[in-house]
Write a protein that binds this DNA or RNA. Structure first.
Length: 428
RNA sequence: GGAGACGUGCCAGAGUGGCCGAAUGGACUUCACUGCUAAUGAAGGGUCCGGGGAAACUUGGACCGGGGGUUCAAAUCCCCCCGUCUCCGCCA
């Protein structure tokens, strides 16, 4: 959630942000109004409550007749306190509702507009020229079947559309990729984590996902549990309601988990192969840092993603996502997109978001502040950031980009040690 | 799945309706003292939200797992939920 204090001090910043997102600008004024109503109601309640508390002390001290008289007198006051308490709660609920739908303040420099208004930050490597090499590239599913790596048909038989089996070298390739990602993260100082994939509604909401309205989320209604679409959810919830010590630098986790997405509304899109599936695996970076360090950390996360892409030797570009295409929690987002030859376009392989204090405020994750003398002085929310290090989808780009005319696939050198030295995934 | 016990501050742990934001001990910070980071003595602390103030600060409210309820008044009584532990059962 956003910082209401900041909103009341700089409403124009929030209006501009909403405009850039193509979101409702009137939310700003409605929230400001709700906040002042809330404060008025709270003040009224607190005044009455103070009066009642003072009375309570008198009642406790009094005896006999006097006590009875005081009790009669205070009854009326109690009713007023009750009523004031109810309207204060209502005002709070009204504000909470607006806070719940208010997206994060976008960082200056993020392109305005929607999905197609991204800015290409840079392009690395060049797509392979298969025409020059003299053969027609096969798509990842065709290759996956030739080398016995992917079985979609049986995936559908067992679980339905958008489910698959990774088999043989396919299973090994995924494990190798994720293990390489985790090793890189560990080397960079991340603490590896294997996270819960089912979470409580509070955890899901805290991360910025709406369990009631988000059609992407799988629910277990019976148990009021929700399947995560990314370990970001669990890693953000990990430190909820805690005060962190960031004096020793950022707190960084690398989460390994299966991820689940309903893919509602994407019927007919990416139906072939494993590019868009209901279940996949991912290694995700997650950082807790002081607010003023968030942008620098964002750059670091992006650099680590590029390091991974370099290891698997894929051509890619980086885009600065437009405001309207940001999620609720993100203030800025960079995607790395790899070239997929048979689609003739770049497809997202990683995504790193700077959520500034938005998630942390919702999850109540703070750090202790110190004044110049080093004495403790209050707390404030931290910034949270996340970024992809590897996912199942990477296999699509790896198979296609590194394919050979016969359908076999050359393994990128960095990945070979994770595949027992295997240099080529052979056609069966 | 059945039965029971419990959930209090950084930690341990008292507190069964008003004198409790909460005893006591430990840890921590500051001060004093013994010529030294050990002993002793003293003092001090949390978090959140309002009001006032430029600020130091001051003032009010809330917080004893979470949410409801009873009451003039709830850490304390009642209900629901969550969690922990023990025993039994069941299954890896």
């Amino acid at each position: 959630m956003i910082d209401v204090r900041e909103l009341s001090e700089h409403p124009e910043k929030f209006r501009a942000s909403q405009r850039a997102r193509g979101a409702d600008e009137s939310l700003v004024d409605r929230l400001l109004a709700a906040d002042s109503r809330r404060r008025a109601a709270l003040t009224e309640y607190e005044t009455l409550r103070a009066e009642q508390n003072a009375f309570g002390k008198k009642v406790a001290a009094a005896k006999g007749e006097e006590k009875q008289a005081l009790l009669m007198e205070v009854k009326e006051l109690a009713a007023k306190v009750k009523a004031a308490s109810v309207s204060a709660d209502e005002a709070q609920a009204e504000q909470d509702e607006l806070m719940r739908v208010f997206p994060n303040l976008v960082i200056d420099g993020v392109p305005a507009g929607g999905e197609d208004d991204y800015i290409v930050v840079k392009t690395v490597g060049t797509p392979r020229d298969f025409a020059a090499e003299g053969f027609e590239p096969r798509d990842h599913l065709e290759i996956g079947e030739l080398i016995g790596a992917i079985d979609m048909e049986r995936g559908a038989k067992v679980s339905g559309a958008r489910f698959y089996f990774l088999k043989g070298v396919g299973a090994r390739l995924e494990l190798a990729l994720l293990q390489m990602a985790l090793d890189q993260a560990i080397k960079a100082g991340f603490t590896p984590m294997i996270t819960p994939t089912l979470v409580r509604p509070e955890t899901m909401q805290g991360t910025g996902f709406d369990v009631k309205h988000d059609a992407e989320i799988y629910r277990l209604a019976e148990d009021d549990l929700y399947l995560v679409g990314t370990s970001e959810v669990s890693l953000a919830g990990y430190h909820s309601d805690e005060i962190l010590d960031l004096s020793g630098g950022p707190v960084r986790y690398a989460g390994w988990s299966s991820c689940y997405r309903r893919e509602a509304g994407s019927h007919g899109k990416d139906t072939r192969g494993i590019i868009r599936v209901h279940q996949f695996n991912k290694v995700e970076m997650f950082s807790y840092v002081p607010l003023e360090e968030a942008e620098a950390e964002h750059a670091r996360l992006l650099a680590w993603e590029e390091e991974m892409l370099a290891k698997v030797e894929l051509p890619y570009r980086i885009i600065d996502t437009a405001a309207g295409d940001l999620g609720m929690s993100a203030a800025r987002k960079f995607d790395c997109e790899a070239w997929v030859p048979t689609q003739g376009r770049y497809r997202e392989l990683t995504s790193t978001s700077n959520c500034t204090g938005f998630q942390a405020r919702r999850l109540n994750i703070r750090e202790r502040m110190f004044d110049d003398d080093g004495a403790a002085k209050g707390t404030r929310s931290v910034a949270t950031l996340n970024g992809t290090l590897a996912t199942t989808r990477w296999i699509v780009a790896i198979l296609e980009h590194h394919q050979n005319p016969d359908g076999s696939v050359t393994v990128p050198a960095a990945l070979r040690p994770y595949l027992g030295g295997l240099e080529v995934l052979p056609v069966l």
